[in-house]
Computed example of a mutant assay.
Amino acid sequence: MTAAVPHPREVLLGSQAAALTLPVCDHYSGVEARMRKSLQLQAEMQQEFGHCVFDVTLDCEDGAPVGQEREHAQLVAQLASNAAAGARVAARVHTVDHPAFAQDMDIIAGQAGQRLCHIMIPKVESVDDVLQAERALLAAGAGHLPLHALIESPAAVHRAFEIAAHPRIQSLSFGLMDFVSAHGGAIPASGMTSAGQFQHPLVVRAKLEIAAACHANGKVPSHCVVTEFSDTAAMQAAAGRAAREFGYTRMWSIHPAQIRPILAAFAPEDAEIARAARIIAAAIDADWAPISEEGVLHDRASYRYFWQLLERAHQTGRALPQQAQAWFANPDSAPT
């Protein structure tokens, strides 16, 4: 009897595999009509690509009308519970010091925990906030859920490595607008624009610290929003810089028109995909021993890179070469 061939993901990524396969786009909506439309769009694009290519995060922090936090949390729990099969639905709750936080966690995690992919905690300042959120998860009976943390202040950036190291954390996101406003006018308003956020040294430093903290701990760095949602060129340029120059592997969307530009910006080129598939196939044939490809040596270090490139191609809906398709159609085993 022939032994099963280990999947490339298992061989090359090990315990990091689950965290590193998050969709590259995280789409936020908080108004009921937009939340429903977001879930409908997710289902339509899931059918188009054959798998879920973006998360939908239902928002309580900015979505709940003042005084109606309970009703909004119940709506979020209902929408998540009724989401289509295969949907990836998350929720952003209020901050841990907000009066509605415990209620959010009890209702949303308690009623819809089995359908959620994660819960986003805004304005995380320290590991203590993560611990408080974890206790609320456990109290709601949703101890299986990962947490995502939104880093929005200079102090939180300073503690990013400690926050990312917590085992409950799956991803850190950068909150650009709150980060800029936390500097009391020391960073100009241009630092919040699609282009200016890549130029001001304090903003650039914060982006790099968060990305580095995530990569050091096997977590996913998620880039901030682009507020010029009607400017597709600005959106794709910002997403491209976040991916190529700043090490981000995921990005927020706040308008449906931003989803496809994010997918395109984070997607590898066709030639890169073809080369990665050739190298991984040759590595499997060599039982993961070093190989030579066009006069260049490759071993497990470069195999890991090329496998992650194929993962990103799959996440962004790109067509895969035939020899790579089986690795994603049947993720439990590699072709022999």
Rank of each mutant, 00 (worst) to 15 (best):
A90G: 12
C117K: 05
D62T: 09
T95P: 12
C52Y: 02
C52F: 00
Q78F: 03
H118T: 04
M105D: 14
V53S: 01
H94G: 11
F54L: 02
A83R: 02
I107L: 10
G63N: 05
A64M: 08
D104S: 09
Q111K: 15
G86D: 10
Q114F: 07
F49H: 10
E44Y: 05
P99V: 09
G86Q: 04
C117F: 07
Q46P: 06
N82F: 04
R70L: 14
A100M: 08
V53P: 03
C52V: 04
M120V: 12
T57D: 01
I108F: 01
R115S: 13
G50N: 01
A43L: 00
G50R: 03
Q111W: 10
L116G: 06
Q103S: 14
L79P: 07
A85Y: 05
C52E: 05
G113W: 07
R92H: 08
A85Q: 11
L116D: 12
Q78D: 13
A109T: 02
C117V: 15
C117A: 12
A64E: 07
V96T: 15
V89Q: 02
L58F: 02
L79Q: 08
M45Y: 03
Q78P: 02
A80E: 05
H98C: 14
H98M: 09
Q114A: 15
D62M: 07
F101Y: 12
Q111S: 15
A73D: 06
E69V: 09
R70A: 15
C52T: 12
Q103H: 11
R115D: 05
D106W: 05
D106N: 09
G113E: 09
C60K: 10
V56T: 11
E69D: 08
Q114T: 14
P122A: 11
Q78I: 03
F49V: 03
L58W: 03
M45I: 01
D62Y: 06
T57C: 11
I108K: 01
A73Y: 04
E44I: 01
A84L: 05
A91H: 04
I119S: 05
A43M: 01
D104K: 13
C52W: 01
H94D: 15
Q114C: 11
Q103T: 14
A102P: 06
Q46W: 00
L75T: 11
L116C: 10
C117I: 14
D59R: 09
I107E: 06
I107T: 07
E61G: 14
G67V: 08
H94S: 15
D59Y: 06
A87R: 01
I107H: 03
A64C: 08
A85W: 04
G113Y: 03
A102E: 14
